[in-house]
Design a protein around this nucleic acid. Structure first.
Lengths: 179, 179
DNA sequence: GTCTTTACAAAATCCGGCTTTGTGTAAAGC
DNA sequence: GCTTTACACAAAGCCGGATTTTGTAAAGAC
């Protein structure tokens, strides 16, 4: 990824968080990134593609962070706990996800993780499935898929409607599934 | 509940499914229920209250159906499977939930089970927690709450983003948690 | 007593037409 | 590879007035 692409994605993400996808203007993205409007069109053909690219990029950032936490910890379940905590924490801190989950920009961005959420869901499940495969090699492949998908679904559920100590709950469920 | 209230809730539910909460007109609710507009105002003070009453009523119908399936089956896990199947099935059949989950009317109704979904979530969890308490008396209270909430969250997750055999997956997870 | 009819003020929505803004494409230049 | 300039077209905003809808109230009917 070029520096330009990076700058455009970041600019678009900020503006998206502030004004929603409806109020996003290409010229503002260009100005904020310090380039001309046409450069934005050279990079992403149109607005819809740009918005989708931002969503994909943000997802990638989350999954990278998750992967880091999963592999950094000595105990694999502690790694999961740290990863879940990271996701919840980041979703509250990062302006774009926060604007979505707080309901401010929910109307046009929620579908990305609910209705049209299959891509994100399966991408996240794949990351965690690899972690399971690495540390619980005795778990058969189909059960591994069930565990991974369940864990991801629970995390997303806690993003949408938080309650109590989410990391602890998710870890408790995942541990039980792996026992 | 009086027959009138019932008729008004049904009429409003139909119109809500067809036109969304934005396009719902009180006079149409009245006409469809065969009463005057003022009767609607006598029953529910305003539109917002009416819409919320419909959501609450629909939730009640779901929970009643769930309760029936849970208690009807001989095997408690089979009861759960039937209940989950009922929820998924009904959500696809009943016009109002279907219009929400299919994305047609998602924008203004989705928050009822995502952002502002705590009431529905905890009500559903309570129903299932009672089932757990009845059939797995050895499970301690705090773990019972975890199992119930997890099961409900998974079902809601499958409502929003379906994948594979949801009832089987939910039952597999719940069984593992109760083992 | 419950529902209907009628009436009414205030707010929201709709409209037609006009203006402004924003999108998307293209070509020439540095 | 990015910028500047230019342009056609679509979308969105504005506006003043008509219309609809909401919410409240009182009087009447079954």
């Amino acid at each position: 990824m070029t520096d330009l692409t990076r700058a455009l994605l970041d600019a678009a993400a900020d503006l998206l968080a502030a004004h929603g996808s409806r109020g996003l203007r290409m010229v503002d993205v260009a100005t904020r990134a310090g380039v001309s409007r046409q450069t934005v069109y050279n990079e992403f053909g149109n607005k819809e593609t740009l918005v989708r690219a931002v969503a994909l990029d943000k997802t990638g950032q989350f999954l990278a962070g998750v992967h880091d936490r999963l592999t950094a910890a000595a105990d694999p379940l502690e790694g999961l706990r740290a990863a879940v905590e990271f996701v919840l924490d980041q979703a509250a801190r990062d302006p774009l996800p926060h604007s979505v989950f707080s309901g401010a920009n929910a109307e046009d961005m929620l579908p990305f993780i609910t209705t049209r959420g299959h891509e994100i869901l399966s991408a996240a499940a794949e990351v965690f499935a690899a972690h399971v495969a690495a540390h619980w090699p005795h778990v058969p492949e189909d059960h591994r898929a069930l565990v991974a998908q369940t864990t991801v679904r629970l995390v997303v559920s806690h993003l949408l409607t938080p309650s109590g100590d989410a990391p602890a709950m998710v870890v408790a469920v995942t541990r039980a599934l792996l026992a």
